[in-house]
């Protein structure tokens, strides 16, 4: 039958056939899209509800009494920490009494001390203690200097060479620097 039709009719029928196939395909895709959209809808509802739920949870936590006290608690803690830090002595803190006694103990019988001048270090600069006195003789002074240099607390022990000028009853001034 189809072959009996004129050529133009054949083309029309073929075109119509192709169009109808596309229509079926389009309807199939539409059905697929519609089913997919409908199946997404519960998820959409669930997500929306979940957002509201979490927002309520956050607002209930944030409106709790303890949250309102947060700033006061933080400032109380901060103040306590500052006080504890202020009470903490600096590293390698040495008491003046300990420092003086460690010098006095080392002097022996040939050294007599008549003055101490002490400046505590400030973190940037080392502490300085200046010791003055009278040495019986040069050997005693030299021995005293050596003993002082052996002390771990003292980083620098300086005695002007001119202090060795006098052999007997030599007045001296020793500068001691250290982490104190």
């Amino acid at each position: 039958m189809f072959n009996l039709l004129p050529e133009i009719e054949k083309k029309n029928i073929m075109r119509e056939y192709i169009l109808r196939r596309y229509v079926v395909l389009a309807l199939f895709l539409f059905a697929l899209g519609a089913i997919a959209s409908i199946s997404l809808f519960p998820s959409y509802l669930l997500s929306s509800v979940k957002v509201v739920e979490v927002e309520e949870q956050i607002s209930s936590v944030k409106s709790s009494a303890i949250f309102k006290e947060a700033e006061a608690l933080a400032s109380a803690l901060n103040l306590t920490n500052q006080k504890i830090s202020a009470l903490k002595p600096p590293e390698k803190y040495v008491y003046l009494g300990t420092l003086v006694s460690s010098i006095v103990e080392k002097r022996g019988g040939s050294i007599r001390l008549n003055g101490f001048k002490y400046n505590r270090g400030d973190g940037k600069n080392h502490g300085v203690i200046t010791v003055s006195g009278i040495a019986r003789d040069r050997e005693s002074l030299s021995a005293f200097l050596t003993v002082l240099k052996e002390e771990e607390k003292f980083l620098e022990v300086n005695l002007p060479v001119s202090n060795f000028a006098q052999d007997r009853n030599a007045p001296f001034t020793i500068d001691i620097r250290g982490a104190f």
């Binding site: 003055g115 400046n119 505590r120």
Partner: peptide, 12 residues
């Protein structure tokens, strides 16, 4: 107390 000796001069 939180106190410290900053400077001292002892002289005979």
């Amino acid at each position: 107390l939180s106190a410290e000796i900053k400077n001292a001069t002892l002289s005979l």
